[in-house]
């Protein structure tokens, strides 16, 4: 006999894994994406092509496949097997999402009119000042909707990590399915709806915060 509270405890434990993976991915992919953007926009061609090829490969293959590669490749290539499934999942997610973020950043940066840079230049600002004092906030405002999409996708993508054995929420729920109990699996949908609901509210708050100017 499986009690409801045992199911909930199991699902909550799984959810914690999803949340951890979600947080680590966001925290690391946001800055790493910027590094990749700089690489893909540099005037130094070899770096630019290398970066763009990397982005093409990451965006051009399934995240599920990347999870397997990250889990098995170190053991096969360097004879040092991945010790932690969570670490492997985090690595694959961070790289994957950084590649997508980098393209969103690049689009945002390239959409800022040249006149903004020229106005800064004639006012004697340095490149760094120009980027951080004038360009960045305009970029943030422009990319918030696309970034919001990615972040919401990420909450649900974290469940993919079960293919390399991370005991996230859907994997926990499936164990009950095997015992003939289907409602835990379906109820995971509610968990995701609550998470994306909270994110939607946060994102619209952020967009409102930047409503005071038009860019």
């Amino acid at each position: 006999m499986t009690t409801t509270s045992a199911v909930l405890a199991s699902l909550n434990g799984g959810l914690l894994e999803n949340l951890k993976l979600f947080a680590v991915t966001l925290l690391l992919a946001i800055p790493l994406g910027l590094v990749i953007t700089l690489g893909s926009m540099t005037r130094f061609k070899p770096i630019r092509w290398l970066t763009r090829t990397f982005v093409w490969i990451i965006r051009g293959t399934p995240l599920m496949l990347q999870l397997f590669v990250v889990l098995y490749a170190p053991g096969i290539l360097f004879n040092t097997p991945m010790s932690s499934r969570f670490f492997a999942a985090s690595l694959a997610f961070v790289i994957n999402y950084a590649a997508y973020f980098s393209e969103i950043y690049r689009g945002g940066i390239e959409s800022i009119p040249k006149g903004q840079y020229e106005a800064c230049a004639v006012l004697g600002m340095t490149r760094t000042q120009t980027f951080f004092k004038v360009i960045l906030l305009q970029v943030v405002k422009r990319i918030t909707p696309s970034m919001g999409n990615e972040v919401i996708t990420l909450t649900k993508d974290t469940s993919l990590a079960r293919v390399i054995g991370l005991t996230e929420i859907i994997m926990c729920a499936e164990r009950f399915t095997k015992k003939g109990l289907i409602w835990p699996l379906f109820s995971t949908g509610l968990y995701f709806l609550v998470m994306t609901g909270i994110l939607t509210i946060l994102l619209s708050w952020l967009e409102k915060k930047m409503d005071y100017f038009k860019a």
Partner: peptide, 19 residues
């Protein structure tokens, strides 16, 4: 940067900083 400060520039399309 130092030399261009001899000159001020007003653009056709203003280019004010929106934020």
């Amino acid at each position: 940067r130092k030399n261009r400060l001899h000159f001020g520039m007003v653009f056709q399309a203003f280019h004010l900083f929106p934020q």
